[in-house]
Design a protein around this nucleic acid. Structure first.
Lengths: 115, 115
DNA sequence: TTGCCATATTCCATTACTGGAATATGATGT
DNA sequence: ACATCATATTCCAGTAATGGAATATGGCAA
C-alpha cells in the first residue's frame, strides 16, 4: 500500500504547509482570487491552483466564477472533523492535575540527570 | 519537490489513519505494549512498530524499556500545535451569526435549484 | 478575429510512503 | 550456549505528491 492521497480526507489535505497557509489567508478576510493568493504566497500560480484543487476536492474551499477570475472562499465546517479529533486531547495538557504530573516528571528527569 | 516526510511535523504524522488510531488507543488508557496495540489493531507487528517509530520521531509518543517489551505512552502536549491551528476556526461554524448565514445560503441554493 | 489576461492542466524529475515478508536484535529462562 | 519471545529493521512492489515549465482553456476587449 502507498501513502493515502492528499485528497482522501481533511487530515491529508491540510498536512501540506502551503495549503494551511491558503486556509489561513481565506479565513482572515473575504474570498480571494487566485491571483491575490499568488501575490501573498511566494509560490507560482500553477502551484497555487493545484493546491486549491486539492482543498476543493475535500470541501475545504468553494469556488465561484467571476468573469475570468475565480473567487475562492473558505468552508470552515469542513475543518470540524479535524477539530473534533484533536479537541478531546486538550484536557490532557490543560488540566491542573496534568500540569502537576508533568512538572513532577520534569523534576524526576532532572534528578536522574544529576546522578 | 516531493511530499513532506511523515516525520516532518505533527500534521503529517497524524494524517495516517492507523497512526491516529494508535493515538486514540494510548489516550484512552494506560501506556501500552507493542503487542497489546497489535491485538487491538488489525495490523501486523512490523507495521505497528513502524507507525510507532514515526509517532516517536515527532514526539507524539514516548517509549520505556520494560524487559523485552516496550511501553509506549502518549505525549499529549505534542498535539497542541494541531489544536492551536484548528481551534480558531471553531467559531466560524459555531457562532449564531454563522449558523444564520449558512441557513440563508442553503435557502438561496434551494431557490436556485427550483429555477 | 486577434490578442490578452486569469486560471487550469499536463508533463516531468525527484522523492517518499505503506504493508508484507524475511530477518536482525536483544532480553530472558533453562 | 540455546531456544524463545517481543520488537525493530531491511528489502521490496506499487503508488503518489510537489513544483517548475510549458501549454491549454475560456472570458473579454478592440
Amino acid at each position: 500500500m502507498a501513502r493515502a492521497t492528499t485528497t482522501s480526507d481533511v487530515f491529508n489535505a491540510v498536512a501540506e504547509p502551503k495549503r494551511r497557509e491558503i486556509v489561513v489567508l481565506l479565513a482572515a478576510g473575504r474570498p480571494q482570487t487566485v491571483g491575490e493568493l499568488v501575490v501573498s504566497m511566494d509560490l507560482a500560480q500553477p502551484a497555487v491552483s493545484k493546491h486549491l484543487a486539492v482543498l476543493r476536492s475535500v470541501g475545504i474551499v468553494n469556488v465561484e466564477k467571476r468573469g475570468k477570475e475565480r473567487l475562492y472562499s473558505l468552508n470552515p465546517q469542513s475543518l470540524k472533523p479535524l477539530h473534533d479529533w484533536v479537541h478531546p486531547f486538550e484536557r490532557l495538557w490543560t488540566s491542573q492535575l496534568d500540569r502537576i504530573k508533568r512538572s513532577a516528571e520534569k523534576l524526576a528527569a532532572k534528578r536522574a540527570a544529576n546522578n
